[in-house]
Amino acid sequence: MSDALLSINSLDAFYDDFQALYDIDMSLELGEVIAIIGANGAGKSTLMRSISGLLRNESGQIAFKGASIGSKRADQVAYMGIALVPEGRQLFPSLSVEENLLLGGTVGRSGPWSLKRIYELFPVLSDRRNQPSTSLSGGQQQMAAIGRALMSNPELILFDEISLGLAPIVIKGIYEALPNIVGEGMTAMIVEQDISKALEVSSRVYCLQEGRVSLTGKVGEVSREDITAAYFGVAA
């Protein structure tokens, strides 16, 4: 707990009057990769929005490197070293591929990632660097979105549904690139509906159900049945 990179303490999150998260406790050690799984509407995206600052909460509910960030704006959180690969990729359509990547580097943190390194990781982006981001295929857009997040040299990277809407072969390619990313000592949180993909690369798992943590444990130690029960809310 004391050396946790990210710790979430009794987080309640709201959209106006609607409460989306209830009393979430979570912690993430430096260099760890964890999976957040849950059905549609379980609160996964709300959790991502809360951590990244798009949804602002009470200050002390989220701490990053010991500092309270719960009430900080998304741009302030980005400067502290958290990057989000948003669901649906969401590249900027008015910007070229390279401009999207450069925009990701706005915060200017130093670290291993640069345009050159991104292009080495995803060579296809280099070939299309000057094209509009809208001309990329879904998989290429996902690479650009990951590259854009990496450009800020974050200490914690959040992946929100990176396989959503992509062909299995494309998903495979992207997940094969993940070890290269987290191998740099980066801490990551992977949100997926596709349980098996997420568990392959993670060491621990949290399962969300109706806004609450319904299960948590080390990937090797929780059984498939436990996960199914925690995921769907029924005994398997």
Binding site: S52, L54, R73, A74, D75, Q76, P86, T106
Partner: peptide, 8 residues
């Protein structure tokens, strides 16, 4: 998304 990239 722009805000996420550090633009206020």
């Amino acid at each position: 998304i722009a805000q996420l990239m550090g633009l206020n």
